[in-house]
C-alpha cells in the first residue's frame, strides 16, 4: 500500500504512514456514515460520477454536487452548494463529506504531482456510524457549524474527522512547531520560502485567499 508507483522521488516514511492512516480512517465507520457509504461517496467523487449516482447511492443530488464540485472544481465552491447539501443531508453529514473529499484531494494531489499511480481506495470495514458529533456548535458567518478558532478546527463538529485532517499537516506541509519558524528548512528538501511558493501558487489556481 502506498508504494507511489511511478514516483521519481523517494517517499518519506512519515508521509507514507500518514496516508496509510488516512486510508484506514476512510475505511472505518464515520460519525454519520458507515464505511460503505463513505467509500461509495469517495469513489464517485474521484470518478466525477457522484451526480449520476445520486439516488442509486445513499446520497441525493445536492450532496453529489458538493462532492463532485469539491473534488474536481474547487474554484467553483461556494456557500450555496454547501448549504443546499446541508438542507438535504444535515450539517454533520455535510461536514463529513467535506472532510472526506478534501482529504482524498490531498492524497490524490500528491500522487498526481509526482506522476505516481493513484492508490486504490480501501475495502470497507463493517460497523455502524459512531455518532461522535460535538453538540452546541453554530455557524459563525460560516457555511457549516464550527468552533471558534483558526482553520485547523473547522471540522471539529466531527472530532474524528477534524483529527484526521489535522494529522496530515505535518507530513505534507509542516508541524505546528515548524510553522512557527519563518526560517524552517527541511534537510534535505525545501526551505520555508520555497514551500510557501508552492502553497501560494496552488491557492492562486484554486482561487482561494487562504
Amino acid at each position: 500500500m502506498f508504494d507511489f508507483v511511478g514516483s521519481p522521488a523517494p517517499i518519506r516514511p512519515d508521509l507514507r504512514y500518514s496516508y496509510i492512516n488516512t486510508w484506514a480512517h476512510f475505511a472505518r465507520p464515520g460519525p454519520t456514515l458507515d464505511s460503505g457509504q463513505r467509500l461509495a461517496l469517495l469513489a464517485a467523487a474521484r470518478r466525477g460520477t457522484a451526480a449520476s449516482r445520486a439516488g442509486d447511492e445513499w446520497f441525493g443530488p445536492a450532496v453529489a454536487d458538493l462532492a463532485d464540485t469539491l473534488y474536481a472544481k474547487p474554484a467553483a465552491m461556494n456557500g450555496a452548494i454547501v448549504r443546499t447539501a446541508a438542507d438535504e443531508a444535515g450539517d454533520p453529514t455535510t461536514v463529513e463529506v467535506i472532510g472526506l473529499v478534501s482529504m482524498l484531494a490531498a492524497v490524490d494531489g500528491t500522487h498526481r504531482a509526482l506522476g505516481a499511480r493513484q492508490e486504490p481506495l480501501p475495502d470497507p470495514v463493517s460497523g455502524q456510524p459512531t455518532g461522535n458529533i460535538t453538540a452546541g456548535l453554530k455557524r459563525r458567518r460560516t457555511h457549516i457549524p464550527v468552533p471558534p478558532g483558526p482553520i485547523p478546527v473547522v471540522l471539529d463538529l466531527l472530532p474524528d474527522e477534524g483529527a484526521a485532517f489535522q494529522a496530515l499537516f505535518g507530513p505534507q506541509y509542516m508541524t505546528g512547531w515548524e510553522m512557527a519558524l519563518d526560517d524552517f528548512r527541511r534537510q534535505p528538501g525545501l526551505n520555508r520560502a520555497q514551500i510557501e511558493i508552492v502553497s501560494s501558487r496552488t491557492s492562486m489556481h484554486n482561487e482561494c485567499f487562504y
Binding site: V82, S102, A106, G109, A113, H143, V154, L155, P171
Partner: peptide, 17 residues
C-alpha cells in the same frame, strides 16, 4: 506534498466558509 496539502486546505477553507 505541499501541493497536496493545499489541495486539501483550499477546499476546506472555501467549503467551510
Amino acid at each position: 506534498s505541499v501541493f497536496g496539502n493545499f489541495e486539501m486546505m483550499n477546499r476546506i477553507a472555501d467549503a467551510s466558509g
